[in-house]
Amino acid sequence: MSYFKPAFRHPAAPTNSLGYHEDDYEGSLSTLCAGCGHDSVSGAIVRACFELSLEPHRIAKISGIGCSSKTPTYFLGNSHGFNSVHGRMPSVATGANLANRDLTYIGVSGDGDTASIGMGQFAHLVRRNLNIVYIVENNGCYGLTKGQDSATSDVGSHSKKGDPNPFESIDLCAVALQLGADFVARSFSGDKEQLVPLIKAAISHPGFAFLDVVSPCVTFNNNQGSTKSYEFVREHMEATGTVDFVPMHQEITTRYEEGASQEVCLHDGSVIHLRKGNNEYNLRDRQAAMGAIEQHKAEGQILTGLLYMDPDSLDLHSVVDTSDRPLNSLTEEELCPSLQALDNINESLR
């Protein structure tokens, strides 16, 4: 087993507009099981941040506990990170974001960390529309404790050594939509062509962006009978359409035929193109999205891609009217106004 990665990279590896190579966004060598879907999600995050030319030191990655929550060690090695308590990533992320609104926040969680122990925190994070990319690496089992069924495991699905799961599953995308999330997408770790543009769009979205990524547990839940195996997901996934994300500074080079794609413009000037699949799908219709999810589930399919988005999302800072600047940039005078200021407030309330 190798414990380190060779230092050599491709001599002609491209750089982004900041002059960084893709490997500048990598982290330590993964200690997850070989073939774990989570490593592919890490790879997609690396690729997305590289392609968006984000400055690594302007990113914070926050996680809870679990296989998924270990992964921030394996990407963005030059960014800020906080590996928090089980199911408590949302509250730590909220604190961080309120203190410094200028960073890009990437929350990484798993199905246990979000749909079980962290369900309460998750629900309130969605409601509050914190500006964060929230990625659930969803494998339908508790891999770190040897593969028990998790709350997202489908009825009847069974893991390597288990009986069929008797309980109804929680569909996190449906929950997020119901709770008012303005960016909801589902993807698959084995499909980077879909996942990378989704992560880029999610990072650019100005509020809470939810990504449920089916990420097979190669050790405990990649067997016949599992609905979260590589083979099953590949055979049963159906996309809402193909997502292209065009950042604001980049020229649109692909030509889109009239009516063949939907465009969603973000406030920063970036554009998300949804090239349609076979079905008509309206990105801006929350009820339709919820219906489509249910319908695909009933048909035994997994609906993936961008499910819903509202580019006019107002994030927590806008709603509660906080300081426009990060707290660490405020001066003592701004943080501790004079006695006169207090008197003025009191006077105004008389």
Partner: peptide, 15 residues
């Protein structure tokens, strides 16, 4: 091969 992409992600020279 189960097409999990693990090799693609780990390859230092992305070959």
């Amino acid at each position: 091969c189960i097409e999990c992409d693990a090799c693609v992600d780990i390859c230092p020279t992305r070959c």
